[in-house]
Design a protein around this nucleic acid. Structure first.
Length: 282
DNA sequence: TCGTGATGTCATGAG
DNA sequence: CGCTCATGACATCAC
């Protein structure tokens, strides 16, 4: 019975297992990292642990447990029988002892590919020893790969969260700017309107002069709002009055007028640009 | 006892 | 073709 058999025994129905929403759950768990700062402590911690373990020649798992396997064949792990059954590490130690592996499993696992191949050529391992060594090596490397994979995944989520926060801030800033520009626009319209009114009254224009003036007045000019029959004048010229003119009391500006024929980008119900100016969904 | 995070392992595809 | 790596999925453990 190999370690794989042991594991297979604990999950013999692997093929028919219902694949749960593990990735989704995992994402839900980790996605809310807005409280973390730019230098993610988790990642730093993991980096430090990884580098320190590499320095000691231990794998992360072994570094974390500090139990190690280097004493595997030294005979100083006489209490291995007391390890709980199913513990793959103790099981491996037991297996290594059973097959009388002449080298530390740690050492074998840390060998480069070439060195490992060389060892296999030089050393006459038994079938069982070979199985164990390959198994240990495979699982050790996969253990590290899984840790790298998880680190990358967390890193990715963390970066995405940073990006989201950045875009949210940018959006708030733009909305504020938009609001300020709208206020400024209203103020300017009021000023120009007052000025127009004053000019018209001081010039003491005749009705026909007003009509001529209205004819050549752009709909976005506040002056046009002072002609009593401006609506009929404009419609006579084929120029519809913009809804905003009704709202603000002034005909629409050129840009708005261009959009007057299409209300798709305006509040569908009220046609109120102020309403959509907040940019907030109701 | 249940939920959750961490970790190891297996299976599998890609390089 | 065999090996290595990355990754999804699952099991297990500790808290």
């Amino acid at each position: 019975m190999s370690i794989q058999d042991l594991d297979a025994g604990s999950s013999s129905d692997t093929g028919s297992r219902t694949k749960q929403n593990a990735p989704i759950d995992w994402f839900k768990i980790h996605v809310n990292l807005s409280s973390t700062n730019t230098s993610c402590p988790f990642l730093q911690d993991l980096d430090q642990r990884t580098s320190s373990w590499k320095g000691t020649g231990l794998s992360e798992c072994e570094g974390a447990s500090q139990s190690g396997l280097s004493s595997l064949n030294s005979g100083e792990d006489g209490d291995s029988e007391t390890e709980p059954e199913g513990d793959s590490e103790s099981y491996t130690r037991e297996r290594a002892r059973q097959v009388q592996l002449p080298y530390s499993v740690d050492w074998i696992v840390d060998l480069s590919r070439n060195d490992f191949q060389q060892l296999l050529k030089q050393q006459n391992f038994t079938r069982e020893q070979l199985d164990l060594v390959h198994d240990m090596r495979r699982r050790s490397k996969n253990r590290l790969a899984a840790q790298r994979c998880r680190k990358r995944k967390l890193d990715c989520i963390y970066n995405l969260q940073c990006e989201i926060n950045k875009l949210k801030t940018e959006r708030e800033k733009l909305m504020m700017e938009k609001s300020q520009l709208n206020q400024q626009k209203v103020k300017t319209c009021h000023s120009v309107s007052a000025l127009c009114q004053r000019v018209c009254s001081e010039a003491n224009l005749q009705p026909e002069q007003l009509q001529v003036l209205a004819k050549y007045t752009s709909p976005d000019c506040p002056l046009s709002s002072f002609f009593p029959n401006i609506d009929s004048l404009l419609s006579h010229c084929g120029v519809p009055l913009h809804p905003e003119a009704v709202f603000s009391g002034y005909p629409a500006g050129p840009a708005d007028y261009d959009r007057a024929s299409s209300t798709s980008d305006r509040d569908a119900v009220t046609g109120d640009p102020q309403h959509s100016a907040t940019g907030e969904a109701p």
